[in-house]
């Protein structure tokens, strides 16, 4: 589904390379985890894939179902099925959560040539999904992420993901800031979405999330490159020993 090949990325404003030949494939239906030290380029990868300004791809490519992602506008990527759950979800005062979400859902449906949801249809679906994530009706009415706690923001990201039904879900440290119960809720939400034609790329620092969301493959990202890939046991190894040995091994 997602193919990243020899991706090199530098910052637009300064001559600083961040991704240095990253290659990664996430086949349909699989869950891949990315772990790696702070500053290794995990968030940068998620931003570049979803189309944030400020980065320049100097080499390599990334495709979703064979279509080149890198030339598309962010909204086009979203309509094509890509979703990023942000490490730091953004607050937007004055714009209602529901208004925003309905606009997003219908904009994507429209872009794909599907019928838009009526207010009533939308409301029914969103209420059910919010209840699953224990997001209160009051939170739905509030402006986007404004006054939400850290954990509430993360759950709101998963609600958006559940509503938008993307095919390629990238989650950037969705587990950070979640309490134990919320982590389970989020994991349940993600597991409910798992299907043969949906894939996940889960960025995390901790093994715990991966206990709930069982990855097929774990990648270690360091200094802009995947230095090692393996099964779920790789995450356990990181949890126990840190990155020292892995980094040494990679040179």
């Amino acid at each position: 589904m997602l193919n990243i090949n020899n991706l090199h990325v530098k910052l637009e404003d300064e001559d600083k390379a961040i991704l240095k030949g990253l290659t990664l494939e996430v086949p349909a239906g699989e869950v891949h985890a990315i772990m790696g030290p702070n500053g290794s380029g995990k968030s940068t990868l998620s931003y570049v894939l979803s189309g944030r300004d400020g980065y320049v791809v100097t080499e390599g490519e990334a495709t979703l179902d064979g279509a080149s992602l890198l030339d598309m506008d962010p909204e086009v990527r979203a309509a094509a099925g890509l979703f990023l759950a942000f490490q730091y979800p953004v607050e937007i005062p004055g714009v209602g959560n529901m208004t925003f979400l309905r606009t997003a859902v219908n904009a994507q449906r429209k872009a794909r040539g599907e019928a838009e949801l009526t207010a009533g249809e939308f409301l029914k679906v969103v209420r059910a999904k919010a209840a699953d994530l224990q997001i209160s009706p009051d939170m739905l009415k509030r402006p986007v992420n404004v006054g939400f706690s850290g954990g509430e923001k993360k759950r709101n990201e998963i609600l958006q993901m559940a509503m938008l039904e993307p095919r390629m879900c990238i989650m950037d440290e969705t587990d950070s800031g979640l309490d134990v119960d919320a982590m389970r809720l989020v994991a349940d939400g993600v597991n409910a979405l798992r299907s043969p034609d949906r894939s996940f790329l889960v960025i995390t620092h901790y093994q715990r999330l991966l206990d709930h969301i069982k990855p097929d493959v774990v990648h270690i990202l360091s200094n802009g490159r995947i230095i090692k890939s393996g099964g779920p046991e790789l995450a356990l190894e990181v949890e126990e020993n840190g990155y020292g040995d892995l980094l040494a091994e990679a040179g």
Binding site: S50, G51, R52, D53, D73, P74, E75, R77, A78, A79, F83, L84, F86, P89, V90, I92, P93, G94, V95, F100, L101, T103, A104, V105, A107, Q108, A111, P143, Q160, L164
Partner: peptide, 25 residues
């Protein structure tokens, strides 16, 4: 904020409308 909205599929024009309304709120 603009990127956040667009990453959800909200077209750029519409996202700017949201942000202007947000500013005026």
């Amino acid at each position: 904020a603009l990127f956040y909205l667009r990453s959800r599929g909200v077209p750029r024009d519409r996202a700017i409308v949201f942000l202007v309304l947000s500013f005026l709120a």
